[in-house]
Design a binder for these strands. Structure first.
Length: 535
RNA sequence: GCCCUCGUAGCUCAGCGGAUAGAGCAUCGGCCUCCGGAGCCGUGUGCGCAGGUUCGAGUCCUGCCGAGGGCGCCA
């Protein structure tokens, strides 16, 4: 049983004895930032005082008296502080239990939860046009989407990673025409694509190839290769053309009509999206009979719902205006709005040599994601994209991110892991045999550095859960930096082996670094960053 | 004009309604007889403005100011 459960039970008991009725549904417990305020703290006296008609300080004191009469497990003291906090002081044994728990559950089991209850979640991300290489901005959505998928998997969702290929429409025709023109050395059409990649790809293209079909595959291959360097795999590359071929668009239109979600006006067919909060109704079929961009996309989301319980989309900031209409469309089809979650990633600015980065020549009007990865490496790219909340605009400084030293957070964290591996390897070389966990006296870990490492490890399950609920992988990145800092501090002050370190303490510290390794591996895996054994 | 996101230290950013707001970089200064000094420790400055809700607000609400993005029978 978690320490918190013990504390909650005890608090509930104490509240009853203090005459609070009814008991509050939830009893908040938190780890105070300041250790002077104890190891765990509850605001329950503050929260319930009013409804119980009591003074918070007095209620708090009553709780402290009741709790002190019979201290919960691990607790060495209870006191009231500030406006009415009940603060618990715990023996180090509660942290020693954390160590045992981490090692017993391991990388696969620790910090896992069942928030998702096995629900099938479809995470759609990247979904870039196949007519040019991925650009640097795509990197953020790509790394974010993949990390979201990893978080959701760890929290009990069954996840499918999917990307949507816009393989029909005007821009595909323009792309094919550009390839065809470049192939014969002619001028690129007015509406065509100007980047150097068009000429590179055209040179690869067999003379008898259909520029559109060949170009589509070439573009997809380019995207897949770039994503591969980041360790990102989509199980499904969903073709927009396949929607047309399968009749899914007609089926979606029929479905919308059945739900009375559309009407005709001015020769066009409109979606009643204002029924569910959109600013205005949206055209689905133009007066010339063509579909708008929205229509196949609705059919696509409808198709995804046929295959999953929940949808998660990662869209760029330029698509935010699209959120309301898609959510409205899904509600018009009878879905709960919460079943479709849409995350918007804000823009990224790239800086190099202290200057805003210029558009690269290769792809015309964009900075290629490949170039960013080549410059800083996949691990640094992923960690950097994920270090910060996607809600805020990001400045990506290539000079900082490319640094191979400890001032670079990704190396700082990875080095912590490598350092642990080095210690464990050193122990093997020195002929130190690891004792089974039951035989390790974890109570020997009393140094503040050792306890700090354990306090941080104890937080990981909460961090993962919060990161999952808030769709915030950056919380995991922040945790990894803290754990790494705790490890480096421990390493500096506490020798695992050497003069004056008893055999028993060596065993306990080996267990401790092994637990830290478990935590770091979990965090780095959630971020999609490698955990190197040496650097 | 409307919608979305953001505004925290000189810079880049954390901060699940809690107590004295934290990291990295940059500045200045300490620490190597042993597991990797690619490290550790110390040092200064800050929540855009004004109201509100709350026992308690950087966090929630409203307004204003500022930045970016979006407002098409384009995709």
């Amino acid at each position: 049983m978690d320490v918190r459960d013990h504390l909650r039970d005890a608090l509930r008991n104490a509240l009853g004895r203090a005459g609070v009725d009814p008991l509050p549904d939830e009893i908040a417990l938190e780890r105070p930032a300041n250790l002077d305020h104890g190891d765990w703290s509850s605001n329950v006296a503050l929260a319930t005082a009013k409804s119980a008609g009591k003074n918070p300080r007095e209620l708090g004191q009553a709780l402290v008296d009741a709790l002190s009469a019979e201290l919960p497990a691990h607790v060495t003291g209870v006191e009231i502080a500030g406006p009415g906090f009940v603060n618990f002081r715990l023996a180090d044994s509660w942290l020693h239990n954390v160590l045992v728990e981490v090692l017993e559950e391991g990388v696969d089991g620790y910090a896992r939860s069942d928030l998702g209850s096995g629900a099938h979640l479809n995470v759609e991300f990247v979904s870039a046009n196949p007519n040019k290489p991925l650009h640097a901005g795509h990197g953020r959505g790509a790394c974010y989407g993949d990390s979201i998928a990893r978080l959701k998997e760890r929290c009990g969702f069954r996840v499918t990673r999917e990307t949507y290929i816009n393989d029909r429409g005007v821009q595909m025709t323009n792309y094919a025409n550009s390839l065809a023109a470049a192939k014969v050395g002619g001028p690129i059409p007015e509406d065509g694509y100007q980047g150097a990649y068009i000429h590179e790809w055209a040179a690869e293209m067999p003379v008898d190839a259909d520029p559109l079909e060949w170009g589509l595959e070439r573009g997809k291959r380019s995207h897949a290769a770039t994503l591969e360097t980041l360790g990102i795999h989509h199980e499904i590359w969903f073709s927009e053309r396949s929607l047309v071929a399968s009749g899914a668009i007609d089926a979606a239109m029929d479905d919308l009509r059945t739900h009375e979600a559309v009407f005709e006006a001015d020769g066009a067919v409109w979606l009643r999206s204002t029924d569910f909060g959109d600013d205005k109704d949206r055209v689905l079929v133009k007066s010339d009979g063509d579909l708008t961009y929205l229509t196949p996309d609705i059919a696509y989301h409808r198709d995804k719902f046929d295959r999953s319980d929940l949808l998660f989309n990662v869209w760029g900031a330029d698509h935010h205006g699209y959120v309301a209409r898609m959510k409205a469309a899904m509600q018009l089809l009878g879905h709960d709005p919460d079943e479709l979650e849409i995350a918007i990633t804000q823009m990224v600015d790239f800086v190099k040599d202290g200057e805003p980065m210029k558009m690269s020549g290769r792809s015309g009007n964009q900075i290629d994601l490949d170039d960013i990865i080549a410059e800083v490496g996949p691990d640094a790219a992923r960690f950097t994209y994920l270090m910060q909340s996607v809600d805020s605009r990001q400045t990506f400084d290539l000079d900082e991110v490319a640094k191979k030293g400890m001032e670079n957070p990704v190396f700082y964290v990875q080095y912590a892991h490598a350092r642990i591996c080095s210690i464990l390897a050193r122990a093997v070389e020195a002929g130190v045999e690891r004792a089974p966990l039951e035989a390790v006296d974890v109570a020997l870990l009393v140094d503040e550095r050792e306890l700090a490492l354990l306090r941080s490890l104890e937080e990981l399950p909460d961090i993962v859960r919060i990161a999952c609920i808030d769709n915030a992988p950056h919380r995991v990145a922040a945790w990894a930096r803290e754990q790494a800092a705790a490890l480096h501090g421990f390493y500096h002050d506490c020798y695992v082996m050497g003069d004056g370190v008893s055999a028993g303490l060596t065993q306990a510290r080996l267990a401790l670094v092994a637990a830290s390794q478990v935590g770091l591996q979990i965090a780095l895996d959630l971020l999609g960053v490698s955990a190197p054994e040496s650097m």
